[in-house]
Simulated scan of single mutants.
Amino acid sequence: MTNETLTSASVEILRYAAFTSDPAGGNPAGVVLDAAGLDDAGMLAVAAEVGYSETAFVTAGDAASRRFRLRYFSPLAEVAFCGHATVATAVALAERLGPGALTFDTPVGEIPVTTTADGRGAVRATLTSAPTHSRPAQDAELDAALAALGWAREDLDPALPPHVAFGGNEHLVLAAGTRARLARLSYDFDALAEVMRSRGWTTVQLVHRENERLFHARDPFPVGGVVEDPATGAAAAALGGYLRAVGEVGRPLTIHVRQGEDMGRPSDLVVDVDPADARVRVTGGAVSMV
Rank of each mutant, 00 (worst) to 15 (best):
Thr203Glu: 14
Asp143Thr: 14
Pro158His: 11
Val290Gln: 14
Met196Asn: 02
Ser10Val: 07
Pro222Gln: 04
Glu95Ser: 14
Val46His: 02
Ala36Tyr: 07
Leu149Ala: 11
Val32Ser: 07
Pro275Tyr: 00
Glu49Phe: 06
Arg153Ala: 14
Asp188Val: 06
Val290Leu: 15
Ser288Asn: 13
Gln205Val: 07
His84Ala: 01
Ala231Leu: 07
Ser288His: 10
Asp188Lys: 05
Thr55Val: 04
Thr5Arg: 12
Ala47Trp: 06
Val58Lys: 06
Ala9Lys: 13
Thr203Trp: 04
Ala231Asn: 05
His133Phe: 15
Arg67Tyr: 09
Glu4Pro: 00
Pro162Met: 09
Ser186Pro: 04
Ile13Asp: 01
Leu6His: 06
Leu14Ile: 01
Ala234Tyr: 03
Pro266Tyr: 00
Ala217Val: 00
Ala88Val: 01
Leu142Ile: 14
Leu38Asp: 06
Glu141Cys: 13
Arg218Tyr: 11
Gly241Glu: 03
Pro222Tyr: 00
Gly26Met: 05
Gly26His: 08
Arg67Trp: 08
Leu14Asn: 01
Phe73Thr: 05
Ala165His: 11
Arg120Glu: 15
Glu141Lys: 06
Ala193Met: 01
Glu210Leu: 11
Leu185Met: 13
Ala235His: 10
Ala147Phe: 08
Tyr72Asp: 01
Thr203Leu: 13
Phe221Gln: 10
Gly109Tyr: 04
Ser198Trp: 03
Val79Ser: 08
Gly119Trp: 01
Pro158Lys: 08
His133Glu: 14
Pro99Ile: 04
Phe215Lys: 03
Gly250Phe: 00
Val91Phe: 04
Gly30Cys: 05
Asp139Ile: 08
Ala88Phe: 07
Leu33Trp: 07
Phe68Lys: 00
Pro158Gly: 14
Gly284Ser: 10
Ala183Thr: 11
Leu102Asn: 11
Glu194Pro: 04
Ala77Val: 07
Val108Trp: 00
Gly250Lys: 02
Ala29Lys: 04
His84Asn: 01
Pro107Asn: 02
Val32Leu: 00
Val108Asp: 02
Arg209Ser: 13
Leu192Trp: 02
Ala77Met: 13
His216Trp: 15
Ala245Ser: 14
Asp229Arg: 08
Leu6Met: 10
Gly150His: 02
Arg258Met: 09
Gly30Phe: 05
Ala278Phe: 08
Ala92Tyr: 04
Arg69Glu: 15
Gln205Trp: 10
Ala183Lys: 09
Ser65Lys: 13
Met289Lys: 07
Asp274Gln: 05
Gln259Arg: 09
Asp274Met: 06
Leu185Pro: 11
Arg67Lys: 12
Arg199Phe: 09
Ala17His: 01
Glu154Met: 11
Ala159Met: 07
Gly109Ile: 03
Leu206Gln: 10
Val257Asn: 07
Leu149Pro: 08
Thr59Gly: 14
Val113Ile: 08
Arg197Trp: 12
Ala148Glu: 07
Pro23Glu: 08
Glu170Ile: 06
Gly42Ala: 11
Val46Asn: 03
